[in-house]
């Protein structure tokens, strides 16, 4: 353990960790809000909604996050006058907000596909039974389908969050220095590989915390499926 190195770059790297966590927390949350309507649009009866949501998901899953980040940030830089005219330059001026925007759009596409799959995996008999009971479409979705779909979607969603935590390193190409970015900077000045070891440990800790939260969540949303004695 190189204490001198830790003293010089430790604070910077913790700052980077903070950037990583806030980037992921904000964009995954906003992405989840966007993902539900997109998932519903993907399986809706309207051809237009299906087409639009399919194109959206197709584009964001089919192109690299790196390319999307570049396009949003440097692409917007070329249209400063136009963006100022419509009052959006404040958003595109800030690299951090550009990163949030791109990551949100990207993760929403993946989350939408996870949700769509989960909703379609709920047996058709469930909605038929609800219809037989005279429940309206929205109520059926909210009370019957989604609670069961979330159980199926939970683990894949956890995967997506973990991928975002590591994928957010891409933000450093547009000057938002996350944990990986600050680590690379520390390495480029110290030439000591140890900094990568610290970064790996920090990522492991974050993923471990997330894993435990997800275990709790799973126990919580599947409590109706266990016999009373086995409840925790």
């Amino acid at each position: 353990m190189n204490w001198d190195l830790l003293q010089r770059y430790g604070v910077q790297m913790l700052g980077g960790l903070n950037v990583t966590l806030s980037l992921v927390a904000v964009s995954v949350t906003l992405g989840a809000l966007l993902a539900l309507p997109v998932a519903l649009a993907r399986i809706s009866d309207s051809k237009l909604l299906r087409g639009v949501s399919f194109s959206y998901v197709y584009f964001f899953r089919g192109t690299p996050l790196l390319a999307q980040t570049f396009l949003v940030y440097y692409g917007a830089g070329q249209f400063r006058a136009e963006l100022e005219a419509v009052g959006l330059w404040w958003l595109f001026r800030e690299a951090y907000l550009c990163a949030i925007l791109t990551f949100t759009l990207n993760t929403a596409a993946y989350q939408a596909e996870i949700l769509r799959g989960a909703i379609q995996a709920v047996p058709i008999g469930q909605s038929e039974a609800a219809a037989a009971l005279g429940l309206k479409g929205w109520t059926t979705l909210r009370k019957i389908i989604l609670p069961q779909a979330f159980v199926i979607a939970l683990r894949p969603l956890g995967n997506e969050v973990i991928l975002m935590i590591k994928g957010s390193a891409i933000a450093s190409v547009i000057t938002v220095y996350d944990l990986m970015g600050t680590t690379r900077l520390a390495f480029s000045r110290s030439f000591d590989f140890e900094v990568y070891l610290w970064a790996a440990v920090l990522y492991l800790v974050v993923v471990e915390v997330l894993r435990r939260v997800w275990d709790r969540l799973e126990i919580r949303i599947t409590r109706h499926m266990r016999p009373a004695t086995a409840r925790t």
Binding site: Y74, G77, R93, S172, T175
Partner: peptide, 18 residues
């Protein structure tokens, strides 16, 4: 202080006023 992977990207951001 904002650091860029390449000089060209920093130049773009100077030109765009960021």
């Amino acid at each position: 202080v904002k650091l860029y992977p390449t000089q060209e990207e920093a130049n773009l951001d100077l030109a765009s006023g960021r």
